[in-house]
Amino acid sequence: MTMLEFDHLRVEINGRPILRDVTLSVAAGEAVGLVGESGSGKSMTVKSVLRLLPPGARATGTVRFGDTDVHTLDGAGLRRMRSQDVAMVFQDPRATVNPVRTIGDFLTEVLRDQGVSRSDARTRAAGLLADVGVDHVARRLRQRPHELSGGLLQRVVIAAALATSPKLILADEPTTALDVTTQEEVVAILNERRREHGSALLFISHDLELAAAVCDRIAVMYAGEIVEILPADRLHEDARHPYTQALLRSRPGTVAPGERLATVPGSPQSAFDAPAGCVFADRCPQAAGLCRDVRPALLPIDSGLAACHLLPRETPSVA
């Protein structure tokens, strides 16, 4: 069953495209990783689910959550979706949690708003904290964010996200602001708990390996478009899009120590001035004439989907 579906989503801010064409679905209980360079539109895609777009933004196409078109929700419906069905974990826990209020306030706030009594909310918050591996729970509930480490605070944020057993969790680079040693732990906890709650996960990362470890499928974004979608366990074998392949080549660990790391030539493309044809054409080492003029469609190849003219197609259908 499809939990979340983007269908030709396009977002413009004051006429400048930020997202050009995003078509992607997340099934119930499934984890999908959204990877790409900074500015490729990953965050904007995720934010559009909760209609958290910046002022002046205009979205076309549809974002469907369950049976509802998110763009048609009224205020109350949108609030219900935000508070019960979809939870978001942001990049920097320090910025996400109100610095002057207690951890307990943060965890119980949404529950209280839904009519749960103070003592019940308190008990549930304590349980949630214990579940994500936070110790001294009673004391933590009385503490404020500045008294907790970043890793601990992100666990608190994850606990808050799980509070209402949401159907979908949106995680926007949840480990980027943490130090390397706590990153793995935090991701493991997020993934474990969301499996228990049966929540689907849309996981943004610019770390391909991390995304592949956590998710069932990987979607690669470039300049506001999804250029390839493939199963996480086939990432290395089945990556067919030149951009995905370039990304895979530019990871540390692909070369012997001391050698220069491969990079993707050129600089990241913004969705605004992307070429008329394939968005990656300007940086693609294999780009041909067709690539610059005609937009490639996202078509099945091997175990996944890729948008590239250069791939052999069984039925060559170019729009």
């Binding site: 508070s83 942001f90 610095p99 209020r101 706030e109 949404v110 708003d113």
Partner: peptide, 25 residues
């Protein structure tokens, strides 16, 4: 502030966000 955006993302009513997260801070 980000924490206000986060509070909105959590579906809190407008007035609650204003009171507990904007005015309080």
């Amino acid at each position: 502030a980000d924490h206000v955006a986060a509070a909105r993302a959590r579906g809190l009513p407008r007035l609650a966000v204003l009171r507990r997260h904007v005015l309080r801070n």
